[in-house]
Design a protein around this nucleic acid. Sequence first.
DNA 1: GTGTACTCATTTGTCCAACCAACTAGGGGT
DNA 2: ACCCCTAGTTGGTTGGACAAATGAGTACAC
Lengths: 237, 237
Amino acid sequence: MVNPSQDAANGSAVDQIVARIRKLIETDGLTVGDKLPTERELCETFATSRNTVREAMRMLKAYGIVDVRPKVGATIVDQRMNRAFDIFSFNVAEVSRKTFDEIQGFRELIETGAALHIFSAATPHDLASLRAINQQMVQARSVVEASQFDLQFHTELIALIGNKSILDIYGIMTPVILRIMQRGKTRRIIEGETFREHEAILKAIETSDNLAYQYLMRTHLRAGLATFADEVESLDG
Amino acid sequence: MVNPSQDAANGSAVDQIVARIRKLIETDGLTVGDKLPTERELCETFATSRNTVREAMRMLKAYGIVDVRPKVGATIVDQRMNRAFDIFSFNVAEVSRKTFDEIQGFRELIETGAALHIFSAATPHDLASLRAINQQMVQARSVVEASQFDLQFHTELIALIGNKSILDIYGIMTPVILRIMQRGKTRRIIEGETFREHEAILKAIETSDNLAYQYLMRTHLRAGLATFADEVESLDG
DNA sequence: GTGTACTCATTTGTCCAACCAACTAGGGGT
DNA sequence: ACCCCTAGTTGGTTGGACAAATGAGTACAC
């Protein structure tokens, strides 16, 4: 289910066409900006009906692989990031407690575990930049705005690891993380707790104090968790 | 482009149907596990053709909102997380040194950072299972087979964390990790190094020896890295 | 020669009708 | 009461049709 290759093995004609179009893109060396054959040409090439091809194109479109414009055709793009982004912001009116725990658990592993990487990578300039973001957060007028700076703080911290894969994953999770932040952090941000915690974390980085950093970061992330739990309970009661 | 609501404003009939189905789910209070009306019913409800409904269903399927089973119907699910990560598993053709570093760096953060979670979650049964996998690995005939057991060992370790998102991410990375393993670990597995390292890690888990666990796991992962580097150099030279 | 307006083939979007294969439920026979 | 079989339902696929908008080529006016 997780592995897309299973889709091909699925035997569903549409999934097979999706796979064959992907292979076509690969073998023909098509890249971003190139145009795909027309739907009718694809029908002929793959000996299938146009509806099947169209459903396959819908999949590729949903995946952000192609951008199809009416009366013009399909061009290859790479909007996968945006699409993954879309999917998360799709219908998440409710962030389940389970989702919250998973995301925060993941963040805790990454952000506390990355201590040594961050210590060795952080320059004075980086620290100044992080402090500036922290300042902007506390000066933000709305919770939404403040949450964005909060997330930016953590994202730039992660960027210091220098691992693009991890940064990508953070990018995907952005909508959910933002929602989580906006939900429970109203009072914390206003009262300056988040600001002070960020400052303490920065100080730990400056002094390369691993123990302090890990403790502060963990506490920081779990503080949000506690607030979230309160919110949920207050909604329940 | 990023905002899904634009799809609805797009005017495309399919996108409108997608939006209306989402609204239907919301107003009817449908949740995960519930069944959607049949395609033909949706045609009638929305006064549209079946192809349009089907293309809309393809979108919802691609987004991980519904799971459609032939001859049965569409049930509501929430696999958005999986789907979002799926999208990135599209082009994993080449494993560059950079990709390798990033993946292994990610694994190091997760697998060493998860020590305490693993200690508290691991039961004797889990440990026995892991030992069995390790045995199967060393008895495997081919490198491919051995790599699969090697990955299974690590995956089951990660499963002990109890964080489905992380497990999903591992699922996505599976092809790349396997490629990495198959590439550089031939001699290591045959010589039993990997087996012994796994055993040592299990012993550290049994005794809840955090320091030993983290050291052994880090060394284990970086050993693979060194082998990979050798392979690359030998290919270059 | 140049620029404009027009025509027309092309392409995607949508719809319709039909058939297939598999699953489900219910009836009929034992 | 149990089993088998049949008919209806459902998603999967096909082929064909028309509408609307685009873009390219052409004819015409100046």
